[in-house]
Amino acid sequence: MPGTHGEHDATADPGFRPRIPAAEWDDWRWHMRKRVNTTEKARRWLRLTPDEEKAIADSAGRYRWSITPYYASLMDPDDPACPIRLQAVPAPGEFERFPGSDVDPVGDTYYRKTNRVVHKYRDRVILLVTEACPVYCRHCTRKFHTTDVSGTYFRDDEGGSFDEDLRYIAEHPEIRDVLLTGGDPLSYQDGKLEEIVSGLRAIPSVEIIRIGSRFPVLLPQRITDGLCEMLARHHPVWLNTHFNHPKEITEESAAAVDRLLRHGVPVGNQTVLLRGINDDVATMRTLMTELLRIRVRPYYLYHCDNVTGVAHFMTSVEKGWEIMEGLQGHITGFGVPQYVLTTRIGKVPLARPYFTRTPDGLSLRNHRGEEMAVDTAAYPITERDAR
């Protein structure tokens, strides 16, 4: 929120956190330059615990980390269990080993066809644009991208030509939908991003361009009128973002979403179920209804992938079922996301069914646990003989 004398007051404790001139606070490039990525910088925003300081030190040479001043301003400076803080500050759990964890459990490298194209589904691909992010989320499914050592899903250098990638897409006319991801594609300047988007739009078989970006959450100042006008020149363009907790829905993030929508860019949300952050019904209900209030459509609720360095965030599938039961029928239907597990064979829906098959038809259950039976005469289970 704006402070006095044209400054942003980043906290109620002005003796602890910095006061930032509004012109700088509103400039996304300033936030990118001033990202928190050392213990010394973090102490300007947070009172770090010994565990956090050790995890930051242990991250050196292992995992990148950085936090935009905007996202840091959402954190409780005194509570290490703050749901925003848990998503961005390194923690000891990242260095534990968990059964079955893998750097690439979803198969990105298995399905990679060029330096950037991952072709898992017949009619759509992802285009890995960059390794860079404004904040390196501790729960990232592509955490291998954020290692300080040899971790990368790119076959070649990120800065190379996109010609091979665009050629592959053009040579496969079954591809009608391309998702730009990474890293975060909006880390690129508008001009470079438009080169990529216009290159895709020049391919006749590409009908839909999607952008996966957490900038509306982590640095909403990035969603400028100029960016939105550029995207509008290449419609249909969709954007999926990644709100995980109600605290992330702020006046700034709502304004960023509004700018996208006013330029014809639909916004969907993909939440990850995270232990200690949103793994309770009340938090998830509030998140979904608040998303609807700012006109963001809940899309997926991802079960947290068993990724190396991430698995400490995983809940049980049963916990996911509990949360879905607490959403279905209790909030507006289009506010209920689809609960899925991402695997090498694709996204698999995990929602528990509200029906069972019986010898006479179906046994149905509603969100209150009430049951009724319908027989095959009223609702046939199999197709009637057409003869």
Rank of each mutant, 00 (worst) to 15 (best):
L301R: 10
E248D: 00
Y300F: 11
D305W: 11
F313V: 03
H234D: 03
S253R: 05
A256V: 09
L231A: 05
R293W: 01
S316V: 14
H303V: 00
G226I: 03
C304H: 09
T250G: 06
L239F: 01
N244R: 06
V296S: 05
E318Y: 13
T283D: 04
Q270D: 07
L291F: 02
L260H: 10
T271F: 00
R259I: 06
E251L: 15
M284I: 02
N269C: 04
V310D: 04
A232L: 01
R275D: 13
T308D: 13
V296Y: 09
E290F: 06
V281I: 11
G264K: 05
R295A: 09
C228I: 03
K247V: 07
T286S: 15
Q270T: 00
R297A: 07
H234V: 07
T271Q: 09
F243I: 00
S253K: 05
C228K: 13
L301H: 09
D258S: 15
P220S: 11
G309A: 12
D279G: 09
D258K: 14
C304F: 06
F313Q: 09
I249W: 10
L274N: 02
V272L: 06
T315H: 14
T250W: 01
L227D: 05
R285L: 01
F313Y: 15
H234N: 12
K247R: 13
R295E: 03
R275E: 12
P298A: 01
P298W: 08
F313P: 04
V237P: 03
E248T: 00
L239N: 10
L219A: 10
L273S: 07
N244H: 10
R285E: 07
H242V: 01
E251R: 15
A311R: 11
I249N: 00
L287G: 05
R285A: 03
N244Q: 07
L292N: 03
V267P: 07
P246E: 08
H242D: 07
I277Q: 06
R275N: 13
A232S: 12
A256T: 07
R259Y: 03
H245Q: 06
R233L: 13
I249E: 00
M314V: 08
L274A: 08
I294E: 01
G309V: 13
M314G: 12
L227Y: 10
P266N: 02
Y299T: 02
L219G: 12
G268F: 02
D225H: 12
C228Y: 05
F313T: 05
L227I: 12
D280S: 06
Y299K: 00
L287V: 02
W238K: 06
A256M: 03
V310F: 05
V307C: 04
V265E: 02
P298C: 02
L218R: 00
G309H: 12
Q270E: 10
A282V: 08
L301E: 10
R262A: 13
G268R: 05
Y300C: 04
E290L: 11
L273K: 07
E251S: 15
E290K: 15
Y299E: 04
R233N: 12
V296G: 06
T283Q: 11
V265C: 11
P220T: 14
V307N: 12
V281P: 04
H235F: 02
I249M: 05
N269V: 00
M314W: 09
